[in-house]
Write a protein that binds this DNA or RNA. Sequence first.
DNA 1: GTATTCTTGAGCAATTTGCTCTACTATGGC
DNA 2: GCCATAGTAGAGCAAATTGCTCAAGAATAC
Lengths: 146, 146
Amino acid sequence: MRISSKGDYGLRALFDLAQRYGKGPVQSEDIARRQGIPINYLNQLLITMRRAGLIESLRGPQGGHMLARSPETITLRDVLIALEGPLLPGDGTREDLIPGVPEDHDLIDEVWSELRAQIETLLSRTTLDDLCQRKRQRAGSVMYYI
Amino acid sequence: MRISSKGDYGLRALFDLAQRYGKGPVQSEDIARRQGIPINYLNQLLITMRRAGLIESLRGPQGGHMLARSPETITLRDVLIALEGPLLPGDGTREDLIPGVPEDHDLIDEVWSELRAQIETLLSRTTLDDLCQRKRQRAGSVMYYI
DNA sequence: GTATTCTTGAGCAATTTGCTCTACTATGGC
DNA sequence: GCCATAGTAGAGCAAATTGCTCAAGAATAC
């Protein structure tokens, strides 16, 4: 169970967009530079996220990408499922298993299933807007000490 | 973030051992047959789990594998970390990232770190003994209806 | 119509996954 | 001591995934 650079890069990119939500499209090159993501790879991830309905993209000069929904409606769960795919056994990933003793097999399947639900609940609790607020709070507290 | 067959097979094998805890060694061939795991692959996973300190193994006739600790002290977290390795960015997996804007970079790092802690807490709540109890309860309730 | 920006798909080296197979080592029992 | 039984170790291997790059194409603003 590992989050690869896809999920990591993807979250960073969406966070970048969230901070500029409502201010028009943001170009992938700017995202790449600010967030330290290889541009060609980022472009791929952006396409994946557009197909997942997380962002919208405009071509041509002054084009770019923007969140398809407001930052408080996009959760870590949305990002990770879009980019990393299914999270645990029991969501179609491992249907090819040779079943053993049925009671044991079913019990373990249920454990994965419940675990997945719990983890998704956890992931659903954090939104892009939460991240933006955290950054603002942090910037604010720095101001006090200056 | 995906649990591969390693974690799945590994949990099934340990669950098999947990149900026979205290009754001497269990041979890998029996585990493989009961749990529907390819024997050669299972043998590899058993070695990994032994190196992680989850099981102990005895060679020779009447040899086999057994839990190194009691089932209530072995959690899903133990199993998954032993077999799947680090769970999320921020545990050494992705140190090679080119950092972007430092505030954003650090904030996302923290998010992964907190998330990992929360997921590990979740995983730590379920032990092998919990699974055994669940199976016994289930068997018990079936008895009532016969 | 041209510069800009996203889109699509190919390609590719490195790593991981999910195995198998062979050889080796340890141990219990005769 | 021999031998059958088990685990141990490591090589090998096809297929999939990761983490990219690159080139060609399509849409749009000016």
